[in-house]
Structure formats: structure tokens, C-alpha cells
């Protein structure tokens, strides 16, 4: 078998670059920057794992926190509680709001424009501003004190635009024929939405929700002054409790348990990584 004549060899490429140094410089820059990105990523994750994994021990998962074991289990439980609470508020709200925007509101409706504006504004607000608001509204105005509930509600508002947008996108990607066909059979609107439109949109919505979980798990700034920093499993929704990310910050602040902070970082990283993979996996199912 003879060789194809259109195969560009490295040598040939280099000779072409030789005559065009500007292009060569750009080529090198692109490669360099890509390497910087990749290497810093590898370094960050690698370093954290290297330092963190040896520090993971059973002590860290003890039921009660004390200064000896520096257990992260209470924070882990708090994280799960807060995530669950926040999602049970923002999930239905975000999904329903998206349904209203996509299925009910007419195009060019003023409300739609207003909603676009608000969701854009919401998604740009830094988490510390959410934290301030949560403190002023939930903690002080509603008098819930530093509590798991206040933290969860603050986070619910924070992830609302994320869930709303991904749901909107997922709903829009359901072909119009689905709806028309069902309406043609005389089905009423609510039925069509729940039986016809929502099922194919589920993977898209779910991947948005999972991304929201990732954000909640990693959130710190908005929780310090809403959920507080108590390192115990809360007795009720109205008592304070720190999440894993807050726990890590607290460890840093106290400055005594750097090794434990590494380990906590690893746990955080694993959770976030899992959430990302899960979200990607679910979203891929949508495209298939």
C-alpha cells in the first residue's frame, strides 16, 4: 500500500512555520497557555489528594465533633440536610417558573422579559450578597436566628436561576410536535405538560439540579452569617450548623488543623467531582 500524499509531517509543518515567525509565536503561546491550564489543574488536584488522602481517618467520621477528632461527619450531615432543604424549595419553584415561561407565557410578554432580567441579575449576584440578604431577611426579619433553615433558604434563592435556566433549556428542546400531537388528541394543557413535555426534559432538568447541588456543597460565603458555624449536628431546623465547605474555612480560621483541612478538601473535591460527572452523564442521556 502506498502512502497518501497529503499527510503533513511535523518537519514540513516546522519548515512552513520557519518562514512565518509570527504564526509560530502564536502557536507556541497557545500551546503554552493550554499547558499552564492543564498543569495547574493537575497540580491543584494532585497536591490536594497527595496531602489529603493520608490524613483521612475514621476519626474524621466520628459522630460528635471535638477538638481531638475534628470530625467532619456533623458538617457532612449538615451539608446533606441543607442541600436537601434548599432543593426542595428551589427545585419545584424553579421548574414551575420555567414551565410557566416556556409553556404559558406568550412570546414577547413583558413578564418574560422581566423574568429574564431577574434571573440574569440573580445569577450574577456574588454569594456574599446573598449571605447578607439571608442574614437580614431570614435571620433577623423572620427571626429564625443562625439556623440550618435560614441557610437552606438563602441557598435556595441562590440556585434558583440555575435550575430555572436549565429547565427552560430542557423544555425548549422538546419538539413542538410533541405538544401539538397531544393537543390534537384533545388532551388538556396540564396533562400535556406532565405526561408529554416533562418526561423527555427530565435528564436536562436533572443535570441542572445536580449542578445546583454542586454549588450548594461548595458554598461558604453565604452560609457563615445565615447557617452559622456550629460544628454539631443540629437538633432542629432552627439551630445552627456548618456545612463541609464552612467547616474547611473554620479549620483554616482556627489555624490548628491544617492536616484535617486537607482531608476535608479531598472529601469536598470528591463530592463536587461526583456531582459533575453525574450531571454530565445525565445530560448526555438527554442528547442520545
Amino acid at each position: 500500500m502506498k502512502n497518501p500524499i497529503n499527510q503533513s509531517t511535523f518537519k514540513r509543518r516546522m519548515r512552513e512555520y520557519q518562514k512565518r515567525p509570527a504564526s509560530f509565536v502564536m502557536f507556541i503561546l497557545v500551546m503554552l497557555c493550554a499547558c499552564v491550564t492543564v498543569l495547574s489543574f493537575v497540580f491543584l488536584v494532585g497536591y490536594l489528594l497527595y496531602k489529603g488522602i493520608p490524613n483521612i481517618s475514621w476519626d474524621l467520621f466520628a459522630l460528635n465533633y471535638n477538638s481531638e477528632n475534628v470530625s467532619l461527619l456533623p458538617s457532612l450531615i449538615n451539608t446533606v440536610t441543607i442541600t436537601f432543604l434548599a432543593l426542595s424549595v428551589s427545585g419545584p419553584t424553579g421548574i414551575f417558573a420555567a414551565i410557566y415561561l416556556v409553556e404559558y407565557a406568550k412570546k414577547g410578554n413583558k413578564l418574560v422579559k422581566l423574568m429574564d432580567l431577574t434571573s440574569e441579575t440573580l445569577s450574577g449576584i456574588p454569594s456574599i450578597v446573598y449571605g447578607l440578604f439571608g442574614m437580614l431577611f431570614f435571620v433577623v426579619a423572620l427571626d429564625w436566628g443562625f439556623s440550618v433553615l435560614a441557610g437552606a433558604c438563602t441557598l435556595a434563592i441562590m440556585v434558583l436561576p440555575l435550575i430555572m435556566r436549565t429547565t427552560q433549556e430542557a423544555l425548549r428542546s422538546v419538539p413542538a410536535e410533541f405538544r401539538e400531537g397531544a393537543f390534537g388528541l384533545g388532551a388538556d394543557k396540564v396533562r400535556v405538560i406532565f405526561k408529554i413535555v416533562l418526561p423527555p426534559a427530565v435528564p436536562g432538568i436533572l443535570s441542572g439540579v445536580i449542578l445546583a447541588v454542586g454549588r450548594i456543597v461548595g458554598e461558604t460565603a453565604s452560609l457563615i452569617y445565615t447557617a452559622g458555624t456550629v460544628a454539631e449536628i443540629p437538633e432542629s431546623l432552627f439551630s445552627s450548623g456548618r456545612t463541609l465547605a464552612v467547616h474547611m474555612y473554620a479549620l483554616f480560621n482556627e489555624g490548628l488543623y491544617i492536616e484535617k483541612a486537607y482531608a476535608t478538601g479531598v472529601v469536598l473535591l470528591v463530592i463536587v467531582c461526583a456531582m459533575n460527572l453525574l450531571s454530565n452523564y445525565v445530560a448526555k442521556k438527554l442528547t442520545r
Partner: peptide, 22 residues
């Protein structure tokens, strides 16, 4: 995945063999 075989010359010069593509 495109493979080209044969010979193409422009004014007698082979444009695939070591010819500056630009």
C-alpha cells in the same frame, strides 16, 4: 480521514511533495 494518492503538479512542480501549502 481524507487520503489523497497520485500526483498533482502546478507548472511542473509537485504541490504535495514538500510544497509550502500557504
Amino acid at each position: 480521514g481524507c487520503r489523497v494518492y497520485g500526483q498533482v503538479t502546478l507548472d511542473g512542480e509537485d504541490i504535495y511533495n514538500d510544497y509550502d501549502v500557504n
